[in-house]
Design a protein around this nucleic acid. Structure first.
Lengths: 168, 168
DNA sequence: CTGGTTGCAAACACTTTGCATGTCG
DNA sequence: CGACATGCAAAGTGTTTGCAACCAG
């Protein structure tokens, strides 16, 4: 389902919701189809790697204000159209939520260069239910991210002056 | 392993590293055992639920400056003594890293009241290796958090306007 | 026409940093 | 004594919000 992107070093999702499907959802939620809103959705559609609000704004080439990006992302979040991704640097990243339940996935983040790779698969739902049942929680979801050193950064680390003390 | 804390509504970890073990690690890293540093470690030892820098500072009752908390947490992070936890609100939280590899755990966060419960167990390491092997990453770790509605918030939601203050 | 939306700027919250002073080892 | 640590304040980011003008439905 995925194809490596030689230019950016990450994986592009081939299957992205059609823009019409997205605007349709907006309409259903009594939201207006404005220019900035369509642009934001398009930018997200073209980048599988989660983007920060600032990155979205930059990619939009000042088509709209940064505050508008924040407001729209927030709206899209409430409508369940985007998904928040945290990679531990304190900045929120956003990706388009694939249609409903399918295409559940996670990310593999390089601790060296911050590159984000999308990984398929996840643990069985039984695991989640089993783990949370005893606590009486309902509507349980999860967020799972992997971290590690990507091939490039590994080479760079070993190749360069061997100043890399082994870490536990 | 855990015991519910009636006062704070979360779960306290019974097994926490002894303060001497912690200061020992500091010494080993050529770090000084200062007053603020010991206090921070003690606060973390007494609260299993991850704390924000501000919370730590408050619990310290102004024993030291907020900036000192930030700096020390950063130091402890680099030394591998604390672990960062993100629950999706943009604020970093910190918990004491249990001894080495054991006591690997995750968190169950209530989307209603932000309460954090520690959950034991995790998927088999094989899963992680299998999932990331194809990407050539090394030193792979992961971060996993569960989200859901805690029993209290469920009742509050169904009971509608029903008076259910019950100081949380 | 009308309420949602936007631009702009100010306000906020969290986090980092420069510098002089203080203190552990 | 020397290097690291701290307090204080200022500056940096990421994010939110008030308000008047604007625009999609």
């Amino acid at each position: 389902m995925n194809r490596p992107c030689t230019e950016h070093g990450h994986v592009h999702r081939l299957i992205q919701p059609a823009l019409t499907d997205l605007t349709e959802k907006l309409r259903a939620g009594d939201r207006k189809i404005t220019g900035p809103r369509q642009s934001i959705l398009n930018v997200l559609r073209q980048h599988a790697s989660p983007l920060t609000n600032r990155e979205i704004h930059t990619l939009l080439a000042d088509e709209c204000d940064l505050a508008t990006v924040y407001r729209n992302i927030h709206t899209l979040l409430k409508m369940g159209l985007v998904n928040r991704v945290d990679i531990g640097d304190g900045t929120a990243r956003w990706e388009l939520m694939a249609d409903a339940a399918d295409h559940h996935h996670h990310h593999l983040v390089c601790t060296g260069c911050q590159a984000i790779v999308e990984v398929e698969g996840c643990f069985p739902v039984d695991f989640e239910q089993q783990l949370t049942r005893r606590h009486g929680f309902s509507q349980v979801t999860h967020r799972l991210e992997f971290f590690g050193l990507c091939p490039k950064c590994q080479a760079q680390a070993t190749g360069a002056a061997a100043t890399e003390p082994e870490r536990a």
